[in-house]
Amino acid sequence: MNERVQPVYLEEKLEEIRADGHLEYRSKSLPTWCPGCGYFSMVEGLTTALKRLEIDSKDTVVVSGIGCASRFPFFVNTYGFHTLHGRVLPVATGVKIGNDALTVVAVGGDGDAFAIGGGHIPHAARRNVNLTYLVFDNGIYGLTKGQTSPTSALGFKTSSTPYENRDAPLHPLMMLLSYGASWVGQAYAGRQHHLADMITQAVSHQGFSFLRVLSPCVTFDKTNNTYANLNTTVRDLPDDHDNSNLMAAMNQASRDDHPALGLYYKEDRETLEQVMKATASRSVKTGTGRADKQ
């Protein structure tokens, strides 16, 4: 039976949604993004994930940089830190080291992440800081009103590339895979159920988890990352994809004409916090230090 013609009864639906509980993770204030913005999906996704994992709001910190995505902490009912452009990962790392009982979620757009902040990602990834980095990738600069971003498509005309963008876009997933991120996934704002599942997995992962979320900018991108285009181009990772196989992951990640959604790669590795703890305990055991030198 076609579900479009099935009647839906509002009070039953509302009961279902309230019982689900994720609304409690929203703040009181309505998001100020452009109506239609893909980032709305992210609020749904993260709040659903936190509820599912039963992570207490007070133990969660959401850190953001600059850009449209940076408003995110204002719309969720958690601790938030709205920092400087591109410097989200260093701040988030500091938060995590300060108190590793916290669940730390760093959020940012593609500009914040891969342009000015590009220098920070490899280091957060290889250190395997136990935090989740959600990159809302819309392939455009929204807050500065529509210039190309590192993930803008070739041929994209923006206010800064009036004669077409000729800079090849980055491959964030391949970058992150090669940077050594221990959890790399991809989701799409137009499929918020899947998105919520992926955020749930990413947050529950022990280590640096990187989730790229394809998210249309409805105001400045009418040609590339639109809902209409993405709806037809995205695919699921094959059922038999082995997410412990880095090369298989690279192979899937390289096919950006039909971006695949799902978990590309996952490995269990010591986190920065674990390394710090281990180093601390090793230093006690080996007794290296001042006494030695004397």
Binding site: K13, L14, I17, R26, S27, N77
Partner: peptide
């Protein structure tokens, strides 16, 4: 008008 009350 409260975001955390908007069920639908």
């Amino acid at each position: 008008g409260e975001w955390d009350q908007v069920g639908a």
